[in-house]
């Protein structure tokens, strides 16, 4: 298990690096903004693997599904408060869609992250068993992502 987590962390760092390379934030908090966006990119990347199978675009592969769900789970445990410094909202700086409301309701943001972790833990349990379990568990994850984007991320 420990070994797997380590591996996941390595994968995450590699993908994170890719995401860092193509983000456009500038200014005082550019690094922090890139880092938190990279965490989101890791979510999307792993969900892409799982969702591709759930949608029927890719063949179900229980090992790959379990690995992606594991990576996703690890990514939700990354807690980097330093990447959310005061003043790095979209009203104060460029290159971010983080709304100022995040800093007014930091506790709620934490609760929403926790909800995501809970939904992802369920996905982690079921992704590797069979396709139907994967399909059933991915919906609540999408709901948890959306529940935070609605109040805290600006529209494009």
């Amino acid at each position: 298990m420990k070994h797997k987590t380590l591996l996941s962390a390595a994968v995450i760092c590699a993908i994170g690096g890719l995401a860092l390379a193509d983000s456009h934030a500038e200014g005082e908090f550019a690094k922090q903004i890139k880092a938190r966006q990279a965490q989101m990119t890791i979510y999307s990347y792993n969900l892409g693997i799982l969702g591709g199978m759930a949608k029927g675009e890719a063949e179900y592969d229980s090992e790959a599904a379990a690995l992606a769900a594991n990576n996703l789970a690890v990514a939700t445990t990354i807690w980097m408060p330093s990447t959310w410094p005061q003043g790095s909202d979209n009203a104060a700086t460029k290159g971010t869609r983080a709304l100022p409301a995040i800093w007014e309701k930091f506790e709620d943001v934490g609760a929403k992250s926790q909800n995501l972790a809970t939904a992802v833990a369920k996905l982690q349990e079921s992704a590797g068993t069979d396709l139907d379990s994967l399909k059933a568990a991915i919906g609540p994850v999408g709901e948890a992502c959306g529940a935070c984007h609605k109040p805290y991320r600006a529209e494009k």
Binding site: Y45, G139, G142, E143, G146, H149, K150, R153, E155
Partner: peptide
């Protein structure tokens, strides 16, 4: 699910 084809999730 709220997932777009690039697995961002819906907002707003």
């Amino acid at each position: 699910t709220g997932f777009t084809p690039d697995f961002d999730s819906a907002g707003g």
